[in-house]
Simulated assay, not measured.
Amino acid sequence: MRHDTPLNSLGFAKAPADTRVVVAMSGGVDSSVVAAELAAQGYDVVGITLQLYDHGAALAKKGACCAGRDIHDARRVAEELNFPHYVLDYENTFREAVIDDFAESYLAGATPVPCIRCNERVKFKDLLQTAKDLDADCMATGHYIQRKIGPNGAQLHMAADQNRDQSYFLFSTTSEQLDYLRFPLGHLTSK
């Protein structure tokens, strides 16, 4: 397939300003760097953070994914870089799809990994749909994973930095989801 317009850094044959990308912002450094880098490249960035915990209890938490202070940090980054940022209340969904399932599985003798469940049942299901509803061309995350195009489409590969690789968290990501996802940090050889 011939492209008259060269592909931008996210793989689209259009200018970054004409490419809307939703960035899943946990409030941590990695997703903030992704949002900042894409905004600096001129992309139409929209930040989204999922509130996964009770807001009152979460305000004191730092470092847990999508906790209170981290939501504030994500909002501050978006304000400083002048792109919209939305916080979606997913507390009930998270509790049912991840926490309750974790407890039941653990009591049954399994050793589930909550981050994998959250990625497959919340982040890469509902959040992807929200990005599509916002007419985004793709969704980017701060995961250290490489997305490469193979003979049958997008493929998930380990990060260039083996010490930061997070591909094991996303082993259940579908081909359809990979077509839509971008991982701008996966090619970095060190953090």
Score class of each variant (00 low, 15 high):
residue 63 G to F: 08
residue 103 A to R: 15
residue 153 G to D: 13
residue 17 A to C: 15
residue 19 T to L: 04
residue 55 H to Y: 11
residue 169 F to K: 09
residue 21 V to W: 04
residue 75 R to E: 10
residue 27 G to H: 03
residue 65 C to R: 13
residue 179 D to S: 13
residue 131 A to Q: 08
residue 87 V to M: 00
residue 74 A to N: 00
residue 13 A to T: 06
residue 121 R to C: 04
residue 1 M to F: 14
residue 112 P to F: 05
residue 85 H to Q: 12
residue 143 H to M: 06
residue 180 Y to S: 03
residue 37 E to I: 13
residue 51 Q to P: 08
residue 96 E to K: 10
residue 121 R to E: 05
residue 165 D to L: 13
residue 97 A to C: 12
residue 94 F to R: 01
residue 60 A to Y: 10
residue 6 P to M: 11
residue 188 L to Q: 07
residue 158 M to K: 14
residue 153 G to A: 14
residue 183 F to Q: 08
residue 153 G to I: 11
residue 151 P to V: 15
residue 102 F to H: 00
residue 133 D to F: 03
residue 114 P to M: 02
residue 141 T to I: 02
residue 119 N to I: 04
residue 77 V to S: 10
residue 49 T to Q: 02
residue 54 D to L: 01
residue 46 V to W: 04
residue 8 N to F: 03
residue 69 R to F: 08
residue 94 F to Y: 05
residue 81 L to Q: 09
residue 79 E to F: 06
residue 75 R to P: 01
residue 57 A to L: 13
residue 92 N to W: 10
residue 161 D to P: 06
residue 35 A to N: 06
residue 28 G to Q: 06
residue 92 N to G: 11
residue 172 S to V: 07
residue 121 R to T: 01
residue 158 M to D: 12
residue 27 G to C: 03
residue 169 F to I: 07
residue 157 H to W: 13
residue 26 S to C: 03
residue 2 R to V: 12
residue 66 C to M: 02
residue 76 R to P: 00
residue 1 M to G: 15
residue 167 S to H: 06
residue 117 R to K: 12
residue 46 V to K: 02
residue 85 H to Y: 04
residue 70 D to F: 05
residue 34 V to Y: 01
residue 63 G to R: 09
residue 80 E to T: 08
residue 14 K to W: 09
residue 180 Y to I: 01
residue 85 H to T: 07
residue 157 H to E: 12
residue 52 L to D: 07
residue 71 I to C: 09
residue 184 P to N: 09
residue 178 L to P: 07
residue 103 A to Y: 15
residue 43 Y to M: 05
residue 119 N to R: 04
residue 43 Y to F: 14
residue 37 E to Q: 14
residue 31 S to F: 01
residue 16 P to C: 09
residue 100 D to G: 06
residue 119 N to L: 01
residue 184 P to H: 04
residue 186 G to Q: 03
residue 45 V to N: 00
residue 103 A to V: 15
residue 107 L to N: 14
residue 162 Q to P: 09
residue 167 S to V: 07
residue 190 S to V: 11
residue 21 V to D: 00
residue 70 D to C: 08
residue 175 S to L: 09
residue 111 T to G: 12
residue 91 E to T: 15
residue 117 R to L: 12
residue 99 I to Q: 06
residue 25 M to K: 00
residue 60 A to M: 11
residue 181 L to N: 03
residue 19 T to I: 00
residue 128 L to E: 04
residue 102 F to R: 01
residue 28 G to H: 03
residue 85 H to G: 02
residue 80 E to L: 15
residue 11 G to W: 11
residue 107 L to Q: 15
residue 146 Q to E: 14
residue 172 S to R: 14
residue 157 H to I: 03
residue 12 F to M: 08
residue 43 Y to T: 04
residue 182 R to D: 06
residue 165 D to H: 15
residue 164 R to A: 14
residue 138 C to V: 05
residue 26 S to I: 05
residue 65 C to N: 13
residue 59 L to G: 01
residue 181 L to V: 04
residue 140 A to T: 00
residue 167 S to P: 02
residue 189 T to W: 07
residue 182 R to F: 03
residue 6 P to V: 13
residue 124 F to N: 01
residue 138 C to T: 05
residue 121 R to L: 01
residue 25 M to T: 05
residue 86 Y to V: 03
residue 154 A to K: 00
residue 171 F to D: 09
residue 14 K to T: 07
residue 148 K to L: 09
residue 11 G to P: 10
residue 130 T to L: 15
residue 118 C to S: 02
residue 33 V to N: 03
residue 53 Y to F: 11
residue 154 A to Q: 00
residue 49 T to N: 08
residue 141 T to R: 06
